[in-house]
Nucleic acid binder design. Structure first.
Length: 402
RNA sequence: GGAGGGGUGCCGGAGUGGUUAAUCGGAACAGUCUGUAAAACUGUCGCCCUGACGGGCUACACAGGUUCGAACCCUGUCCCCUCCA
């Protein structure tokens, strides 16, 4: 058993409870719990209807990790029942029922990514079906009888929809109650999640109180703005950086962030110290530093966290070489060609371009080159080892078929 | 049970018989510029043939119909939404 840290300096507490945190209910109680030195059960749930974890989720996962590092226990809930209802914040209310196999596969994919940040050895994984699988109508009536419609309508999302005459499925009302019941079942001390989870967390507190448990603390992290710089990061908006993406991809996406988002990302996703962050802000504001350099630093930090230090170094070199010096990358996807083959066929076959029409357009736009020479037509003379470049960052290496 | 509104390209959303492959916005892609795969500016953005000009094909929920001609009119089917009870 690892020792549980129970004494904290002001600075440590501030780092743990302020940095990357939007709200804690009740903060003072949480501080007391931490100082008590008991191993806390930190609950985090997810729906296996989605599989992709992105940087937006990482904000919270990093907090979980920090708590683990001082000795606490994460309880990961696989929401195999709530997944069938659909999170009420989603636009669509009807979701296809997932098969048991799909749920299992999704959960595994999710967890593989989850444990890139969170310590697996200090995590207990629980499936909702362990308890909801046995639920009877009696249990459901007992659970739902503890709440009123008015209570449920306090939730902003429900309230808005109700006021706007938009539909609210009855099953959606069930969602917060089921999530709350999870807290009872696993005896959660603190529930972690995004700020949008506030209502559900509070329902958990209430239910725990009514059954005689000590109510959980609610630990909420801010929503990260996506790569578009406007909306919250989400898969459906396509403005995300996935936790599972390859190093060069993560690095590149960070480089394409708008400059004014740099500080926020450092703040929420890295361990760069407050003092240094403040200096970054000053330098940026005063035009003393090229934002590009800060972004490179950020990109390295993130790749190192999600892959490794060496992957970060490589991605950094790759970026410098390919985008700044416009040289060729050291590795490229290979494609087998027959001599005299039409360039359009090659690229479509390689899967880098969707259609021949698109290749035509790219050629017209001067986007395609072979070994540095711009291609004017689709008729080319391949040599083994030719590097075809499409746009700025797609490269194909030619291998002549025998 | 009754009344009404709607289903258009990756997304949002125009268009209500003929120059509509379909206005516009976003996304995406490309080019220019740049110390950034930032910003800004310009262009492209169904598929296929063509170096290009140009041509062909397929598309506006689905299935039929009217018409010289339909995303637009009619009929049926499926789906979504709102109001009244």
């Amino acid at each position: 058993m690892d020792a549980i840290k129970k004494t904290f300096s002001d600075k440590e507490l501030k780092h743990l409870l302020k940095r990357g945190v939007s709200e804690i209910i009740v903060e003072q109680e949480l501080v007391q719990l931490l100082r008590a030195g008991r191993k806390l059960r930190l609950k985090e749930g997810f729906d296996p209807s989605t599989t992709d974890i992105h940087l937006g989720h990482m904000v919270g996962l990093r907090k979980l990790r920090q708590f683990q590092d001082i000795g606490h226990q994460v309880v990961l809930i696989v929401g195999d029942w709530t997944a069938q209802i659909g999170d009420p914040s989603g636009a669509s209310i009807t979701r296809p029922m997932l098969t048991a196999e799909q749920v299992k596969a999704n959960a595994e994919t999710y967890m593989r990514q989850f444990f890139k940040v969170v310590d697996r050895s200090k995590t207990e994984v629980r499936w909702q079906s362990e308890w909801f699988g046995k639920f009877s109508l009696t249990d459901i009536i007992r659970l739902t009888s503890k709440f009123t419609v008015a209570q449920m309508l306090q939730r902003e999302d429900f309230n808005n929809r109700f006021a706007a005459n938009k539909p609210i499925a009855v099953t959606e009302l069930l969602y917060p109650m089921l999530q709350a019941y999870d807290s009872v079942e696993v005896q959660s001390d603190v529930e972690f999640g995004g700020q949008d989870q506030k209502f559900n967390f509070l329902v958990g507190r209430e239910l725990q109180t009514t059954v005689g448990q000590k109510p959980q603390q609610c630990f909420m992290t801010p929503l990260l703005v996506g790569t578009d710089g406007v909306h919250k990061m989400s898969k459906s908006l396509g403005n995300y950086i996935g936790i599972d993406e390859p190093p060069n991809e993560i690095y590149g996406k960070v480089m394409s962030l708008a400059d004014n988002m740099i500080i926020q990302y450092f703040d929420l996703l890295t361990d760069v110290q407050e003092e240094e962050l403040a200096e970054f802000s000053r330098e940026l504001a005063g035009g003393k530093i090229n934002p590009m350099n800060l972004k490179k630093r950020l990109a390295c930090e993130l790749v190192a966290q999600l892959h490794s230090q060496s992957a970060a170094t490589q991605a950094d070199e790759h970026f410098t070489r390919v985008f700044q010096k416009k040289e060729l990358p050291d590795e490229a996807q290979e494609v087998c060609v027959n001599t005299g083959e039409d360039l359009r066929d090659t690229l479509v076959k390689a899967g880098v371009v969707k259609s021949k029409s698109e290749v035509n357009r790219l050629i017209q736009q001067g986007a395609v080159s072979i070994d540095g020479t711009k291609v004017e037509s689709a008729t080319v003379d391949y040599k083994n080892g030719n590097i075809i470049k499409i746009g700025k960052h797609r490269f194909i290496k030619v291998v002549i078929a025998k």
